[in-house]
Amino acid sequence: MKIVIVGNGAKVNFLADSLLKKGHKLVVINNDLDECEKLSQTKDVMVIHGEGSKKFILEDAGVFGFDLMIAVKSNDPDNLVICLLAKKILGIKRAFATVSNPRNVEVFKKLGINTAVSATFELSSIIEQMAFADQIIHYMPLEEEKLQLLEVVVDKNCKACGSQIMDLGLPLDSIIGCIVRGNNTIVPNGRTEIHEGDKLMIFTNKSSHEATLAALTGGVLS
């Protein structure tokens, strides 16, 4: 995917290393000149020195139509502005942000930001999963991150498409709570067959969400 990261510090290095290993094309916008120089010398990324919350900087970066915007600045309002500009001005459909104040997570989501999390490593994990399973459209940690809710739309390339739930090999602590199929809501059982276009509401423990996604898509997530 084509991904633009706005921010500085160790968070950017962590994300860049993780995403480059997956083969993604990255553009990094960083307002620290020293960090920009180090990034350009050590990583295969385009690095732009500037304040990423400024509209003209984002426009000049040439990231129109990119797949993902990732905002990891330490200031929550800046991250919100960056994500909103990405979606409304740059034509970037998905925007992700880290937040310093966990209370801002719901605010970001209500304003249309696809995912807002309070830990960078969680954001990296989500993005890696989406790079493999494009059908994930929502992710929400529940009960202090012990339980997670995944909302997944099944496409024709998913292993799950055309399979019965009992044949998927889901982890024992993962449950498909309901299926939204068109205008109908289905409470499934083991023999329920999953169709293309189904929206699955899945509850899973934090330790099992990668295995759950792999069982649905047929891929192996690292």
Rank of each mutant, 00 (worst) to 15 (best):
V45W: 01
C161M: 11
S208Q: 06
E143C: 04
K110R: 14
Q129K: 10
A215Y: 10
Q129D: 13
E128I: 07
L170H: 14
I137Y: 14
I175G: 01
E128L: 03
T192N: 11
G65H: 11
A160H: 06
K22H: 11
A133H: 12
V187Y: 06
N31L: 07
N101S: 06
I179W: 00
L172Q: 14
F132R: 12
K206W: 07
L170D: 12
L90V: 07
E122K: 09
F132C: 04
S53Q: 03
V12T: 09
I175P: 03
L216I: 12
N157H: 13
P188I: 04
N31G: 02
N114K: 10
E145S: 09
T115S: 11
I29W: 01
G219T: 05
I175V: 15
C36P: 01
A71G: 10
D44M: 08
G91M: 06
I57G: 10
G182S: 14
S53D: 15
I5G: 01
K199T: 11
L111V: 00
G112F: 03
K43H: 09
T204E: 05
D60M: 02
N157Q: 11
V180N: 14
K55S: 11
Q41W: 00
E37G: 05
L15A: 05
E128F: 03
H138M: 06
D78T: 09
V180A: 13
G9Q: 03
V45C: 08
A86F: 13
D173A: 07
V12S: 04
V99D: 13
E37H: 08
E210I: 02
K87D: 11
D67T: 10
Q129T: 14
N79A: 09
A10W: 10
M69D: 06
K156A: 14
A71C: 10
N189Y: 15
A61L: 04
S208Y: 12
A160E: 14
G197S: 15
G62T: 03
V27T: 07
T115H: 08
G190S: 15
V152F: 09
N75C: 03
A119S: 07
E59A: 04
T42L: 08
S124W: 02
F203R: 05
L111Y: 10
E144C: 10
S207N: 08
D173G: 01
V152K: 02
